[in-house]
Design a protein around this nucleic acid. Structure first.
Length: 194
DNA sequence: CCCTGATTCGC
DNA sequence: GCGAATCAGG
């Protein structure tokens, strides 16, 4: 497989969307994640920062090699199809519906899934979930795999019911955000010391 | 152990 | 330019 224009395009697109190298490689097919990463670097777009600068910046001062890297200037037009919104959400909502323009009382009675509701979970985790649900893949039951977050969103009796679908946290059935709010209700979780 | 991206270096 | 091997984390 060679890096055709289209493939590179898809690579750029997905990378820009924050897809992982392995996911991109899988999508492209015929290449490994190493190939993808290598290409990404050669293209000069290793850094996913663009518009919305993520507060987190991993610096690599190169502990070993001290090769001078003149880092050619990367003329980037305006690659920002999906500016990542900084999480400034301070909403006072607890269990609010997904990213839906119009909200309403959910029909069916009380069949709400694991949803936290009255539980006491860090507002942080909740905000995280709410934020991440906007980026959810919105998968259907059949689309779930061992690697997709199985956190249900919405009402099963509603057309807009879906599963998070984001990459799961290794081992767990949910993505990181949902893992944080999923199983935590351990009456006393004070063993495990670090 | 699963995964992530980063870098090196022979091809 | 390419990407496997390797590195350095999470």
């Amino acid at each position: 497989m060679s890096w055709t224009d289209e493939r590179v395009e898809l690579l750029k697109k997905m990378w820009g969307e924050g897809q992982s190298a392995s996911q991109i490689a899988k999508e492209l097919g015929g290449v490994t994640r190493n190939a993808v990463i290598g290409k990404v670097h050669r293209l000069g777009l290793s850094n996913r920062a663009g518009a919305a600068g993520p507060a987190k910046a991993e610096a690599k001062p190169a502990p070993k090699a001290e090769a001078p890297k003149p880092k050619a200037a990367a003329p980037k037009p305006a690659p920002a199809p999906k500016p990542a919104e900084p999480e400034v959400v301070m909403e006072t909502k607890s269990a609010t519906p997904p990213a839906s323009p119009r909200r309403q009382i959910i029909p069916a009675g009380q069949p709400l899934p694991p949803q936290p509701s009255a539980n006491e979970i860090s507002p942080e985790a909740l905000a995280k979930v709410n934020a991440i649900e906007k980026k959810a893949k919105k998968l259907t039951l059949m689309e779930l795999t061992e690697k997709t977050c199985k956190w249900p969103v919405g009402d099963p009796a509603t057309p807009n019911f879906w599963f998070c679908g984001l990459p799961v946290q290794q081992g767990k059935p949910y993505c990181e955000a949902h893992v944080g709010v999923a199983f935590q209700p351990m009456s006393s979780r004070r063993d495990r010391r670090r």
